[in-house]
Simulated scan of single mutants.
Amino acid sequence: MFILSLTYKKSNDEADRHMESHLAWVKQGYDGGMFLASGRKVPRTGGMILAKGERSAIEAYVAADPFALHGVADYEIIEVAITTALPQLEDLKG
């Protein structure tokens, strides 16, 4: 599993200008089965996405995010080997 941590490099106003296309990109990630959960950081300095799949595929998908394409946010991709989870989240274990 991967944690995709987005950190805004530009203002929230600039992020808002690209939010619709970013959210469409996020929806495609869910539709394709790559994304498991997502949301904003509090305070609003970026966001977070939980993802599954091959690292190379995730890296390629992240590069196509409108936030990345327009320099709105930097991504940190963190791989996590889940060893313990609630019973309903057992599928996350690798």
Rank of each mutant, 00 (worst) to 15 (best):
27 K>T: 03
27 K>C: 02
27 K>D: 08
27 K>S: 08
27 K>M: 07
28 Q>Y: 03
28 Q>M: 10
28 Q>L: 12
29 G>W: 07
29 G>Y: 04
30 Y>H: 09
30 Y>V: 08
31 D>C: 08
31 D>T: 09
32 G>C: 05
32 G>L: 10
32 G>E: 14
32 G>M: 07
32 G>Q: 12
32 G>S: 13
33 G>Y: 02
34 M>G: 00
34 M>W: 04
34 M>K: 06
34 M>D: 02
35 F>H: 01
36 L>W: 00
37 A>G: 09
38 S>Y: 02
39 G>D: 01
39 G>P: 04
40 R>Y: 03
40 R>L: 10
41 K>P: 00
41 K>W: 01
42 V>K: 11
42 V>T: 15
42 V>I: 15
44 R>P: 04
44 R>A: 07
45 T>G: 09
45 T>S: 14
45 T>N: 12
46 G>H: 10
47 G>A: 06
47 G>D: 01
47 G>S: 07
48 M>W: 09
49 I>P: 13
49 I>T: 07
49 I>Q: 05
49 I>D: 08
50 L>S: 06
51 A>V: 06
52 K>M: 14
52 K>I: 15
53 G>V: 07
53 G>Y: 10
53 G>W: 08
54 E>I: 15
55 R>F: 05
55 R>V: 11
56 S>M: 11
56 S>V: 14
56 S>R: 13
57 A>P: 03
57 A>Y: 03
57 A>Q: 14
58 I>A: 06
59 E>P: 10
59 E>K: 12
60 A>G: 05
61 Y>N: 10
62 V>P: 02
62 V>G: 01
63 A>T: 00
64 A>N: 07
65 D>F: 08
66 P>S: 01
66 P>W: 04
67 F>L: 06
68 A>Y: 06
69 L>A: 14
69 L>G: 01
69 L>C: 12
70 H>I: 05
70 H>S: 11
71 G>R: 09
72 V>H: 04
73 A>R: 06
73 A>G: 09
73 A>Y: 09
74 D>Q: 10
74 D>R: 09
74 D>N: 14
75 Y>F: 14
75 Y>K: 04
76 E>G: 13
77 I>D: 02
77 I>R: 03
78 I>P: 04
79 E>N: 01
79 E>H: 02
79 E>A: 05
80 V>D: 00
81 A>Q: 11
81 A>N: 13
83 T>A: 13
83 T>G: 11
83 T>P: 00
83 T>Q: 12
84 T>C: 13
86 L>F: 08
87 P>K: 07
87 P>L: 11
87 P>S: 11
87 P>V: 08
